[in-house]
């Protein structure tokens, strides 16, 4: 028979998270509201220009990402998902009568992960181009 888990205690442990979330969302605007009352205010045309070391700003800053960021991002997502599988495993793999099978399984998993990593490395996906 599976162990019955009391979900109310799990939900209860996230109540403070909700409180802190609300405080975190509310705090910066309130701080800026206080600043609004305390700070001086003056109008000047130059003041609101974009900072570019003193000279007049040229063009738009919103340029495209370099393509190598995408390669890193894809590699990151792959690895992050892979290591996410390790979290639940890490806490239960011993002492539940599944030690040997769990260890073998995870070692196979890690070997596959490492093979993927080596493949990626040899393909040059991890090479930051400095051209």
């Amino acid at each position: 028979m599976p162990e019955i888990i009391d979900t109310s205690s799990i939900i209860n442990s996230y109540v403070p998270v909700a409180i802190f979330l609300i405080v975190g969302v509310v705090m910066p605007p309130i701080t800026m509201l206080i600043v609004k009352f305390l700070s001086p205010r003056s109008k000047s045309k130059q003041k609101f220009t974009t900072y570019e070391s003193g000279s007049d700003p040229t063009g738009d800053a919103r340029i495209q990402f370099n393509v190598e960021y995408y390669i890193y991002a894809i590699a990151f997502v792959l690895f992050d998902v892979e290591i996410l599988f390790l979290y639940p495993w890490a806490t239960v793999y011993r002492g539940h009568g599944i030690t040997s099978i769990a260890t073998t399984a995870i070692l196979a998993f890690i070997v596959i992960m490492v093979i993927g990593f080596i493949y990626e490395w040899k393909k040059g996906a991890l090479q930051w181009s400095t051209k």
Binding site: M32, V35, S39, P40, R41, F48, T50, Y51
Partner: peptide, 9 residues
């Protein structure tokens, strides 16, 4: 707290 809050145009 007493500095002006500037949002660039």
């Amino acid at each position: 707290f007493t500095k002006e809050d500037i949002v660039p145009r």
